[in-house]
Structure formats: structure tokens, C-alpha cells
Amino acid sequence: MSRFIRNPKDVITGGLLLALASMFAYLSLDLPMGSAVRMGPGYFPLMLAGLLALLGLLVLIGGLRFEDAGEPLSLAAIPWRALGLVTLAVVVFGLGIRPLGLGAAMGLSVFLSALASRRFRLPTALLLTALMVAFAWLVFIKALGLPLPMRGPWLGGY
């Protein structure tokens, strides 16, 4: 590590906290402040944003002064494929649930997330998908009666 940044994790955390604190403070400034007696909607958040900034600063300074004891942070270790595919799977479910219905949305999301693993095998993934769709139908629609169609309007259902 560089001489100035002893603990990059804490430096990043501190920086992020400071950025978030400024965002919340900026958003709070638009809100009516009120007084301590009649606190407006902006009073409490602004105080908190100040506190968050202070804590962020302390974490940042700590990161510059003290060595990291835990495992080192490396960009190479970030599993971009898993991060992207799992997130995508959830987003696709959200996009699909109304127009496609539970069956297709659930199937797509399970299949996409199965792709995220390095141990992905097509037969296993297909089997898993079928299993989960059947299970979802049985439990959520038949047993619990969620107000959801199995097939959405795009697939001829309603």
C-alpha cells in the first residue's frame, strides 16, 4: 500500500460516507427547517447528515493513520459476472412479473442467476428453473392464493 493510505477500505468508506452525507444535507436544505420546538421536516435529517459527515471524516482519518488488519481489498477479486447477473435476474423478475406473469418471470430470474456461477451446467439450470416454476405455482398461486396470474397479458393470460 502507498505510504499515505494505510487502510484503503476505511479511506473508501470514509469518502463514501462523506459523499452520502453531502447528498443528504443538500436534499435536506430544500426542506422547511422549523425550530427545535416545532421541528420542520428538514431539521432532523440535517442534524443526521452533519453527524454522518463527522463520522465519515473520522473513518477516513483513521484509514490514513492505521494499518488494515483484515484481508486486502483488490479490484480483481470483484465477481463482476455474479454481481451483474444476480442483479439482472432480480431486475428481470421485476420487469416481467406484470406483463409475463409469475411463471415466466420466475423462470427467467432463476435461470439468469444460475448463469452467475462458474459451475453452471445447462441441464442442471433448466431442471432448477422448471422445479422453481412448478413450486411457485403450487405454493404461491394454488396454496396461498397470491393475486397473481401465472401467465401475464403478453402470454395470452390476463
Binding site: 420466475m106 432463476v110 432448477l128
Partner: peptide, 13 residues
């Protein structure tokens, strides 16, 4: 690797 796609599905619904 078999279990986690199911967990994702349960989380969604």
C-alpha cells in the same frame, strides 16, 4: 451453486 438460484427466486416473489 444449485441452491442459490432458488434463493434468488424466493427473494423476488
Amino acid at each position: 451453486h444449485v441452491l442459490y438460484p432458488l434463493i434468488v427466486g424466493f427473494c423476488c416473489i
